[in-house]
Design a protein around this nucleic acid. Structure first.
Length: 815
DNA sequence: TGCGTGCTTCTTTTT
DNA sequence: GAAGCACGCA
């Protein structure tokens, strides 16, 4: 598939038609003028100064996106070629939205030639185009972080290092750190400071792992996330003529969220801009929240030094939030030392004070938020779309979700586990990847025996060690099966060759059919679809549905991308899929619902009513961040980001007890609450009535002969004992709801590990426990006995009975 | 080689 | 609460 980097031909045809037609120009002109009037003076200057380096410091809610989109529209209005503009954003979503907004002003056809996207997607595209120079196939695979970790794990095992010391995530973050700072594997080994750090953390072999990791990626024809940026730098550094080509092409550069660029990204921009200096960066140092990913706040702080002829525009008026919210946010961010001075203000109404809500438990927190949402919605007649619940960690979402469900509040989780990270999706994608790039070892290992083909781990190990010895990919090793003795039995060899033939046949299809047809064929012929179709458990059904959804997505993709003369190939789809996130799925419905998300993913968004949950020490600020000053400042910026999402009301909550990892722990209110000037605060100490969790007690119970102190807070606690094999005591876990007579159970949340692991306990209804999911539907247990100690017998089809002892603490219910 | 079972470990944030 | 892993049995 030829990549049309310079779509001059088609471009000039369309462009002339739509852009140089007098009518259209007039239309654009009027559009521009009307829009200009909507801008304040600073905004307008930021829009109109399109030549030379420009730094736009855009305070929260100051109309940053408006400036960016209109700046681009303005350039087009002045006759700049859309394909000469490169706009880099941090998320695909931001890019898409901006493109849509620009399309509305200047028309779709011209907008489509803009180069607008994330650093990763734009430069992956360029690297594919220039793949020869970097010595990779154009169809290189992009390893996501899971692939990277798997590869590291394999390497660590291979060179017999202690996997407890060389944890894949730790090693990856070191490698990532190096790559983001453009330190290659070779220079890593020679860098005294880095190797010293590794020595001190007792991980001196990281340098070696890095080198092997690189080699292995190379033979697999794979680049990881950081490679995309690093190889781009390599490309621009080693091939001046190629750099020159792109400097000539991209006459105007725009970078959104500049405060979150890392060194590698910074260098790319510097290189591209060094010829014409038309670079406009937009950002807010107060909203720099990605240093853990290598972001350097200095990039924005040093912009003036980097480009001495710069112009700086500060957007300080906040059009989003009430004065109370803006002032509270300012009072927080003022505590940070390291920042560019600015004066963000609002001229909107003063507004309500910020509510601080204290809850006994995380469960109650969810209930209080849910209750308040309904209250505000009822009183102010607003839709659920105006609400967002923000939290520091994804793990918090589950409890909040439960509360939403209980109160019948429609919600959706933004981010979280990506659709594309689901097992079944990754499985099918691995087939696609392998078809496009058979050397992709990670994909090979993933699917060679899925669905089961009788090729076990031992065989794969033999194959892959042969590959390693010969410095080649597993696929190549498999092709050599006939000539080389790898110690594999004849039966297994036949199976492997059959797998190879299967993939090759897919490859043939991929060259002739369109993406959807191939994808469908692969899903069917590989046996994946069938495997899940047969599985009638709710889990299996949902996986099957997900696969269908992916196929539908590919279908949409083929329709969307289709041009007159060429079919849309699977390759085109696969190229980008590693860079997609959950929010990039097509077909998002616009139904009315509350949004739940992490603060990180909330950046750039706004909501009428915002709740920030879990304002507790160790959670927010995270306990991982309280050690150094710079870390705590970043947490504070995160808090600032969260506050400034709110337009009219803001509610902060914290729980006194939080259930985490099977243990209850006491929590302290976050220090950040104290950072807000009390002038803007309003405390709400009492729980709202009707919450089932309004009491708080602690009691010592004799459980299995052991005295245990159990805290409970209107939540029920129970002890499990499994009689099936070995007797064991499980940790106390809360039930959710229990009726006040204690004779019946409404629902059990948690179960002994072996069962809980399968997520099998869906609900208990009036003394009858109904199992579903992996244990099959309709498995019923009768529960005999009374609280607080109850025996339950579970019948499993074909595998006998299992007895559980459930122990419950007393429940105190205020109703 | 496959599968069930129970134990261990893990959690900040994400392109 | 969930994933990964080791172990033991078929």
């Amino acid at each position: 598939m030829p990549l049309s980097l310079y779509p001059q031909k088609t471009y000039s045809r369309n462009y002339t038609k739509i852009y140089f037609s007098t009518n259209i120009i007039l239309l654009i002109y009027i559009g521009v003028q009307a829009y200009l009037k909507e801008l304040n003076e600073v905004q307008r200057e930021a829009v109109e100064n399109i030549e030379g380096p420009v730094l736009v410091i855009a305070g929260a809610g100051s109309g940053k996106t408006r400036v960016l989109t209109f700046r681009i529209a303005h350039m087009l209005h002045l006759g700049k070629h859309p394909a000469s503009i490169l706009a880099l954003t941090f998320t695909n979503k931001a890019a898409r939205e901006m493109k849509n907004r620009i399309a509305k002003i200047i028309g779709e056809k011209a907008a489509q030639y803009l180069w607008m996207g994330t650093f990763h997607s734009i430069f992956a595209k360029i690297l594919r185009f220039e793949s020869k120079a970097i010595g990779y196939p154009a169809s290189f695979t992009i390893y996501d972080s899971q692939d990277s970790k798997n590869l590291i794990k394999t390497i660590v095992k291979e060179i017999q290092l202690d996997p407890n010391i060389y944890k894949p995530s730790d090693v990856l973050s070191r490698i990532s750190y190096a790559k983001n700072n453009l330190v290659t594997a070779k220079s890593y080994a020679n860098n005294a400071q880095i190797t010293e750090t590794d020595r001190q953390s007792r991980k001196p072999e990281i340098s070696r792992i890095y080198q092997m990791y690189e080699n292995r990626c190379k033979t697999s024809g794979a680049l990881d996330f950081d490679d995309i940026l690093m190889k781009t730098n390599y490309l621009f550094e080693k091939f001046p003529e190629i750099l020159r080509k792109y400097q000539d092409k991209f006459k105007y550069l725009l970078v959104d969220e500049y405060q979150d660029t890392n060194f590698s990204q910074y260098q790319i921009i510097r290189r591209l801009a060094s010829l014409h200096h038309n670079v406009c960066v937009v950002g807010d140092d107060a909203q720099s929240i990605y240093s853990f990913r290598g972001a350097r706040i200095e990039n924005i702080l040093n912009f003036k030094k980097d480009y001495p002829e710069n112009k700086v525009f500060k957007l300080e008026q906040n059009y989003r939030s009430t004065q109370n919210i803006v002032n509270a946010a300012n009072s927080v961010i003022d505590k940070n030392k390291n920042q560019i001075k600015k004066n963000v203000f609002s001229e909107k109404e003063v507004g309500n004070k910020i509510k601080i809500v204290e809850a006994f438990t995380d469960y109650e927190e969810g209930y209080l938020i849910a209750g308040r949402i309904n209250e505000i919605r009822f009183n102010q007649q607003v839709t659920y779309n105006g609400f967002a619940i923000l939290y520091r960690t994804n793990a918090q979402s589950r409890i909040l979700e439960e509360a939403m469900r209980k109160k019948n509040i429609p919600y959706h989780i933004f981010g979280g586990i990506s659709f594309y990270q689901r097992k079944e999706i990754k499985d099918l994608l691995s087939y696609f990847r392998l078809v496009m790039n058979p050397n992709d070892d990670e994909s090979f290992k993933r699917i060679v025996n899925y669905p089961k083909r009788g090729i076990g781990d031992a065989s794969i190990d033999k194959l892959s060690s042969f590959a390693i010895q010969n410095d080649t990919s597993i696929w190549q090793a498999a092709l050599m099966l006939n000539e080389s003795n790898m110690g594999l039995g004849a039966a297994v060899q036949t199976k492997i060759l059959a797998f190879i033939a299967l993939i090759q046949s897919f490859n043939v299809s991929a060259m002739n059919l369109d993406a959807y047809e191939v994808a469908r064929q692969i899903a069917i012929s590989s046996g994946i679809l069938k495997e899940l179709y047969v599985d009638k458990s709710p889990e299996g059904v949902s996986r099957h549905e997900n696969l269908q959804e992916l196929l539908n997505g590919i279908k949409d993709f083929t329709i969307r991308e289709k041009t007159d003369d060429e079919i849309v190939t699977l390759n085109q789809f696969v190229e980008n899929v590693a860079l997609l996130t959950n929010e990039d799925k097509t077909g998002e419905d616009e139904s009315e619902r509350v949004t739940l998300m992490t603060i990180h993913s909330a950046k750039g968004l706004e909501f009428k009513h915002v709740f920030i949950a879990g304002l507790e020490e160790e959670l927010f600020p995270s306990k991982f961040s309280v050690t150094s000053l710079s870390d705590i400042e970043e947490e504070r910026r995160l808090f600032y980001v969260a506050i400034t999402r709110a337009e009219v009301s803001l509610c902060l909550s914290f729980a006194r007890t939080r259930y985490r990892w099977g243990t209850l722990s006491d929590c302290q209110p976050s220090r950040f609450i104290k950072d807000i000037s009390p002038d803007f605060l309003e405390f709400e100490s009492q729980s709202i009535s009707g919450s089932p969790f309004s009491s708080f007690k602690s009691e010592t119970l004799n459980i299995n002969g052991v005295q245990e102190k159990i805290q409970f807070n209107g939540l029920e606690k129970k002890k499990f004992k499994s009689f099936s094999k070995k007797t064991e005591t499980q940790q106390v876990k809360p039930l959710e709801i229990i009726n006040s007579k204690f004779s019946k159970i409404d629902k059990i949340r948690s179960t002994p590990n072996s069962i809980a692991n399968n997520n099998s306990l869906g609900g208990i209804k009036t003394g009858t426990l109904v199992f579903h999911e992996r244990f099959g539907n309709g498995k019923v247990i009768e529960i005999e006995g009374e609280f607080p100690e109850t025996k339950a017998t579970i019948e499993f089809e074909g595998s006998g009975k299992k007895q559980l002892l459930l122990k419950f603490a007393k429940l105190t219910l205020i109703s």
